[in-house]
């Protein structure tokens, strides 16, 4: 009996994921996880304005719970892989679905952000790889990189103007990605209502902008000397 049940679980998951609608649900669900992480990450980062001690203590606090830290990292990795794999599969459907393109085609209702998800997404993914090498492992970090000295590492990293510029560009793209993605995940999961969907869209836009402003404020503060002037 148990083998029948196991069979049918695989079968059901296969049927679900085989359809583009199922893949979109995976996009949405993994998007929720990644967005949740972004919110936590932004709140953590905002401690840079409370000084070096607070920031470094926070980093030490996170590393004091290795099981939780690696659990979250594993969940994020699974979500990123799921998000990327399903997006690539969906994008391949797109090119197969219109082999002959239009001589002339106008977009009349869609946002620029919604049409460029497959540009903003990969660039953000590339940024995340760089970001981890820069500030987590230190492999691409500033010369002064020291493990768990989060505040100093951040300041020395952002004093390199190209790094700060790449960060800002990536955050603008993240804002665009969230501008469409945050409301689109509701639609993909079947949550829509003529009264609430416009509110969700507006809220998604504001959250996307506020998060980008929050993240971008950090390299700007470093470059203007507002943060880390004493280093």
């Amino acid at each position: 009996m148990s083998s029948v049940a196991a069979d049918s679980h695989v079968h059901r998951a296969f049927h679900f994921y085989q359809e583009s609608l199922g893949k979109k649900v995976v996009m949405a669900a993994t998007g929720v996880v990644l967005f949740g992480y972004l919110v936590a990450h932004l709140l953590g980062n905002m401690q840079v304005y409370l000084g070096a001690e607070q920031m470094d203590n926070y980093a030490a606090f996170l590393h004091s719970m290795p099981a939780l830290l690696w659990g979250v990292r594993a969940l994020l990795l699974i979500s990123i892989v799921g998000h990327i794999v399903s997006s690539i599969q969906l994008a391949r459907l797109k090119s197969a679905a219109r082999p002959v393109s239009y001589v002339k085609k106008e977009a009349i209702a869609s946002s620029y952000a919604s049409r460029t998800m497959m540009w903003s997404g990969p660039i953000i993914a590339f940024f995340v790889i760089f970001h981890i090498l820069d500030l987590t492992t230190g492999a691409a970090g500033a010369a002064q990189f020291q493990d768990l000295r989060a505040y100093e590492n951040l300041v020395y990293s952002f004093r390199r103007v190209p790094v700060a510029a790449f960060y800002i560009v990536a955050m603008v793209l993240l804002c665009m990605h969230l501008y469409h993605g945050l409301w689109s995940m509701f639609q993909s999961m079947g949550v829509s209502h003529p009264r609430y969907t416009p509110i969700i869209k507006r809220a998604a836009a504001w959250v996307a902008i506020l998060m980008a402003v929050g993240f971008i404020s950090i390299p700007i503060s470093v470059l203007t000397g507002l943060v880390g002037a004493n280093l």
């Binding site: 979109k24 977009a107 209702a109 869609s110 946002s111």
Partner: peptide, 28 residues
Amino acid sequence: FGSCTNIGECEAVCPKAIPLDVIAGMNR
């Protein structure tokens, strides 16, 4: 046919102004 990306070009050109809401209903 391709996959929906929730961008709303279809709703805008539909001669019967059918809303994106029906796509969410299908997803549900």
